[in-house]
Design a binder for these strands. Structure first.
Length: 475
RNA sequence: UCCCCUGUAGCUCAAUGGUAGAGCGAGCGGCUGUUAACCGCUAGGUUACUGGUUCGAGUCCAGUCGGGGGAGCCA
């Protein structure tokens, strides 16, 4: 009876928030044992977490409790239901605790010696190997709540500003998304592939009657809806089959891609800035408990960093200006592995120097040379740059990549031809420019990189529940 | 994918080519309204895997797999 969920149960978050106001109240809490200590004075102290907040509730089991003997044998990880009265705590560190009248062991831990989550610090690398149990740790519990908070804050921001959430497809038949290697989606028998006259796999016999992939971006699709609903965004999983082995890359990650009509690059940058400020403000307000933990144990500066970010405006500079400042740094004696020249695609070392040393906070770099950017980015009047922007953040690099889109059909076609792409493949994308085209712009925000920036966690693999990376799709 | 580093007890790490060690965690006992508890005792190992060199390999060599840092690609 007591071990099943009821919506009238008090969460530990609620109990701790109420604090002294809850003294004298009867309550039931359901959760997992973090630590269990026994005092020979005749009480057992059980720290219980239900994940509703960072903190644990101290459940005190007195000797006269019928479950006293059983509670002495509780170990880290046991699932329990505790009934009792909320009382002032006699110990330090909490204003309220539960004096247990009953404590039910719902699920025991088979062998406490080999339970993978011990009441002691673990390395993140180890915890990735026990990803099914790592949500029970302080860090990953906090990550889970922060991740949810940021996701909700993003939806809230867009909703308040009149954006519509568009569910762009996960499976795509476009072979023209152009953002790197894609995962194939097929129901064909790999051991017995149907082949056409040319000996190649015959995708006409495949599920969709053509070759399909997992999406690498919802941008091209969401542009269609932008040119009807004006302000739209996608927020969903994205897949890249790149063999990238870094702390900043996942094969499956989540991306937010707003797209706004009747907008230029400046409006695009304004939107990016407003979005990030809004969600970081919500994060500090709603998850102060978790953020204090990150500041305490992961990255001392993370709260201060977000506060500064909210207060200050983005540093914005043109690509040309960024190059000038990097060249100036070179003249003053800073050595780069790759020399700085106008027209180059900035290397990590340049981006890091720019955002970490020259600016000291996130910076928006705008108007890149056209030759290093995608075909759909709008050509500027100078004929050699496009209206593209990257938001670079210290320690992470590119957190946002965006642009004003090329809305002029003739210019778009020229760009497609220049890059050796097949215009026929883009027929519906080109149609947008034939029927009621308008200036529009958008960007992609990497969700995991945003969480890394906010929390100070060092690796995107540790801010997603189950990371997918090359040679790793366990759990 | 490339460069560098790395893989030893449940976890974090020691160990000159010569008997496998500590701390934490775990179990038991002691002490204690405790909360990074403290004190004592005990258990716990095919040194990632495969092969090679050697009288002898955790240690040296090769390959495979995993992990980390950096690079490329990007979010």
């Amino acid at each position: 009876m007591t071990s099943t969920t009821s919506t009238t149960d008090l969460s530990i978050a609620r109990i701790l928030a109420d604090g002294a106001a809850g003294h004298g109240r009867k309550a039931v809490v359901k959760g997992w044992v973090r630590t269990c200590r026994e005092s020979k004075a005749g009480v057992v102290f059980v720290a219980v977490s239900d994940g509703s907040c960072f903190g644990t509730l101290q459940v005190v089991v007195p000797a006269e409790c019928p479950d006293f003997e059983a509670s002495r044998r509780l170990t880290t990880g046991c699932a329990v239901v505790a009934r009792g009265e909320l009382v002032p705590s006699q110990g330090k560190g909490q204003s309220v605790e539960m004096r247990a009248e009953g404590l039910e062991l719902v699920g025991a831990v088979e062998d406490p010696d080999t339970y993978p989550i011990q009441p002691k610090p673990h390395s993140f690398e180890y915890l990735r190997e026990v990803a099914h149990l790592r949500p029970r740790t302080n860090t990953f519990g906090a990550i889970g709540r922060v991740r949810h908070c940021l996701a909700m804050a993003i939806h809230r921001f867009f909703d308040r500003h009149g954006f519509f959430w568009i569910h762009t497809p996960i499976v795509t038949g476009s072979d023209c998304e152009g953002a790197g290697q894609m995962f194939k989606v097929s129901t064909l028998d790999l051991a017995n592939l149907p082949r056409g006259a040319d000996g190649r796999p015959d995708f006409a016999q495949d599920f969709f009657g053509k070759q399909t992939h997992l999406t690498v971006s919802g941008q091209l699709n969401v542009e269609c809806w932008c040119l009807a609903l004006s302000k739209v965004y996608t927020f969903g999983p994205t897949f890249r089959a790149e063999n990238s082995n870094t702390s900043r890359h996942l094969a499956e990650f989540w991306m937010i891609e707003p797209e706004i009509a009747f907008a230029d690059l400046r409006a695009d940058a304004d939107l990016a800035e407003a979005l990030l400020k809004s969600i970081f403000k919500d994060l500090l307000e709603e998850r102060g408990d978790d953020m204090r933990f990150f500041a305490d144990r992961i990255d001392k500066t993370c709260i201060e960093r977000l506060e500064k970010f909210i207060a200050a405006s983005f540093e914005r500079m043109d690509y040309a200006e960024a190059i000038r400042r990097l060249e100036e740094a070179e003249r003053k004696g800073h050595k780069f592995d790759y020399p700085v020249t106008w027209g180059m695609d900035m290397q990590s070392e340049h981006e890091r120097f720019l955002t970490e040393v020259l600016v000291g906070r996130p910076v928006v770099v705008m108007n890149y040379p056209k030759d290093i950017k995608a075909f759909y980015m709008r050509l500027n009047d100078d004929g050699r740059t496009v209206a593209a922007m990257d938001v670079l953040a210290p320690g992470i690099g590119e957190i946002i990549g965006g642009s004003q889109r090329e809305e002029r059909l003739d210019v778009l076609d020229r760009r497609i031809a220049e890059m050796g792409l097949d215009p026929a493949a883009y027929w519906w994308y080109r149609d947008l420019r034939r029927y009621g085209t308008v200036p529009h712009a958008g960007f992609g925000l990497g969700f995991e990189r945003t969480i890394v920036y906010a929390t100070g966690m060092a690796n995107v693999r540790d801010v997603i529940p189950f990371p997918r990376t090359p040679r790793n799709a366990d759990f």
